[in-house]
């Protein structure tokens, strides 16, 4: 009875507006799972960071949203995927303050602190996939 997926949705991430939509849908999901306000905010902020990375660094992609419920534990798992340039040095990218475009470079490192599970895999030239999960 582990990790029953009770809801599933794929949303495209190609533009600014898609990032807003991703935030909104995940917010609705966290509300339906009765996340505390702080937990809602943490997950939605993580979504905003990763969706923006997919659009801006990855050249666009998609997000897979999964609501998990095994009657013992409820949560949301999100997978951001793109076929962009990939990340050559993952450790460097995860470091707070590193950015390839002179930005704050808090997106990846910060996101990891906002969720319970974080997994990044990337192959230069092929693309990037980031999976996060937050439990209630």
């Amino acid at each position: 009875m582990m990790n029953n997926i009770v809801r599933r949705e794929v949303i495209p991430l190609l533009s600014d507006e898609d990032i807003v939509r991703a935030r909104k849908i995940v917010r609705d999901w966290t509300i339906s799972l009765k996340f505390s306000l702080v937990d809602q905010t943490k997950l939605v902020t993580a979504v905003s960071e990763l969706a923006r990375n997919t659009v801006e660094h990855g050249g666009g992609g998609s997000a897979l949203l999964e609501m998990l419920d095994d009657s013992i534990r409820r949560g949301i798992r999100l997978t951001f995927e793109d076929q962009g340039p990939g990340i050559a040095n993952i450790d460097q990218a995860m470091t707070d303050g590193y950015s390839s475009r002179g930005s704050l470079g808090l997106g990846l490192g910060g996101t990891k602190r906002l969720v319970n599970e974080f997994d990044l895999s990337s192959e230069p030239g092929k693309g990037t996939r980031v999976t996060i999960a937050r439990w209630k």
Binding site: V38, T41, K42, L104, G110
Partner: peptide, 14 residues
């Protein structure tokens, strides 16, 4: 700024 937002920003590292 809302408390939940402030807590999240601090965690994010801004």
């Amino acid at each position: 700024m809302q408390p939940a937002v402030a807590i999240t920003i601090v965690e994010l590292g801004l």
